[in-house]
Design a protein around this nucleic acid. Structure first.
Lengths: 329, 329
DNA sequence: TCCGTATGTGGAACCCGTCCCACATGGAGT
DNA sequence: ACTCCATGTGGGACGGGTTCCACATACGGA
């Protein structure tokens, strides 16, 4: 409740002096400092950040947009982003955009309303045009949003290749390929193109199963896996995002298929869920912590008014050998 | 950039009038309204929320404290909390408290600094004393934090009973009981007491394995499960939180045990991970969405200056029958 | 002695919406 | 004719830090 002027009055000094004590800048004599500090203690003074924010025109908050935080990929991303932002002195605001209404647009608008100093978006729904209009600090995870907005992503082409090679090396002849919808332009499609290319080169048949747009809840993946089997497709290999790969594997086990003898599986993303299933799934692992760190590094730079030349940060993926493919043939 | 006074000047009106147009209150003639709206459009005016916040002494932000958002339980909780807060018009700030430093304390301090209007805490580390001093809107998930702070929790006693009954009915004689550390006072211990009581009544032997304090990452559970087996304990039943139950099951499968024939398993929490493993795990399910809704309902009330009498909201749990116990004996 | 500079302090404007209060005007009711 | 009230509008204080600028003192060096 007490304001800086209350403190000033009690300590018999000007509010400027109190401010100086508070921020530890400018000249203040030891004696005065003590008087002020005592007054602050007596009045139980806590500076009002809202007033500071108004003056400085910044809130110290970065918004992180994801379709759904409950999804393990985004949960891990947000976890690391928060930890990293904290190190930079920023607070983290989150928003699930996969809800009714246009939450994505609303959160972007918070940039103009000075509620947040920057936005890290892992969302792929809004039109690129909407982003072009906003000349504010934005960093995109794995999505092209126009010339001006930096992207942080992994080398998906290499990811697709690692997955393909693992399945080819394991001797697959017919693989089920669960892929993101092509409705959205995004770097992550690279993995699918590269995967298909290598499969074709090695004369492996693929069956594409396209995911529903903007679905990230686990029930969807359970459903999708069931759906695949209802179609009666025969395959000896599976490539898809973590949860789809897992749900597919579960269906296979229920049908008494042996993994990896009968069917080989490679998951994409390699979040923790691929480690808590049995057998552990061979996965193309995205470096979540690095993705988060780069995103934060960039947004911090932009929020401090610096510009960034290198509009694309490409990180590397690696293959984590599980027991759903055959290593060392 | 443009301020309300710039708009006023351009429209040849007072700033009060612009404010009235903005907030749609008070008397404004249709003619004036139009003039103002035009000026706003021309100047590309967006109200500065920071100034509003200062005046109203509130930020419209609620902080949610969890040990780690990547943990599925907290991820689901945060997901639903965010969705619910959004409906109330609040923004969601998150904080992982399981990091170096005293993040929990810092975030509580944000209440005094007017950065957030309320805190929902799912964290169990800070001393209760620290909370007593703060007379601000706080809601606790599943933790006693003094007389003044409302708790939202499930009926853990019933949860412990459901789990115990499922294992007893399945014919267990020796069960491994993974339990939270007793270092923290919390309602969730009820489930352990009740579980033990019923086991004893039914002459079932239990082996307690106490979890490490404040560990929620999946590597810990993998490690803990391995640790159990290194101890050479023999058991035909397992009761523990989702991830522990899962990791234990994986170890059992690796050792060629049949589930549920050789060993029965009941998980506590019933987050989505218990549904994406094979076999699906019989779980005591916490109603995540309801927990989130109640938490938000309470914090919204408190943030609006209302007090709340009923200091404890108890929600019900249910048993979801999976295929790791035997139903219908 | 005089100037330059380091040290120390306070008044007041400023950031930008909000809202109290004062002041119009015009028509209805008595 | 006069009060009352609905309608319409603007000035200016306010919320609470921050910082520019003005001013004062003290001390070292020339």
């Amino acid at each position: 409740m007490a304001s800086i002027r209350d403190v000033a009055k009690r300590a018999n000094v000007g509010s400027t002096t109190v401010s100086r004590v508070l921020n530890n800048n400018g000249y203040v004599s030891a004696e005065t400092r003590e008087k002020v500090e005592e007054a602050m203690k007596e009045l139980n003074y806590v500076p009002n950040e809202l007033a500071r924010n108004l003056f400085h025109k910044k809130s110290g908050i970065i918004a992180v947009l994801v379709p759904s935080v409950a999804n393990p990929f985004f949960a891990e991303f947000v976890e690391h982003v928060e930890i990293e932002l904290y190190k930079y002195g920023y607070k983290t605001m989150i928003c699930n955009t996969a809800k009714e209404g246009n939450a994505e647009m609303e959160y972007l608008d918070m940039l103009n309303r000075h509620i947040v100093d920057g936005v890290i978006t892992g969302v792929h729904t809004l039109d690129v045009e909407e982003y072009r209009k906003i000349h504010k600090p934005i960093v995109a995870l794995d999505r092209y949003l126009g010339e001006d907005i930096p992207i942080v992503a992994v080398n998906h082409k290499r990811g697709g290749r690692l997955a393909a090679e693992a399945l080819v090396a394991s001797g697959c002849k017919n693989v089920l390929h669960f892929r993101g919808t092509l409705a959205v332009e995004s770097p992550y499609h690279e993995r699918h193109y590269e995967f298909e290319r290598i499969m074709k080169k090695n004369h492996v048949q693929t069956y594409a199963y396209e995911s529903e747009w903007n679905r990230f809840d686990s029930n969807y993946f359970i459903q999708a896996a069931k759906d695949v089997f209802s179609k009666g497709i025969e395959f000896d290999g599976v490539f898809g995002v973590d949860q789809f790969a897992i749900c597919c594997m579960n269906e296979l086990i229920r049908r008494n298929k042996k993994i990896p003898q009968d069917v080989k599986i490679v998951a994409y993303d390699g979040t923790y869920v691929t480690k808590i299933v049995e057998p552990q799934i061979t996965s193309v692992v995205q470096p979540m912590e690095e993705l988060a760190k780069e995103s934060v590094r960039l947004i911090a730079k932009l929020a401090n008014g610096k510009t960034y030349q290198n509009k694309k940060v490409l990180l590397d993926v690696k293959l984590r050998q599980g027991r759903t493919t055959i290593a060392d043939l």
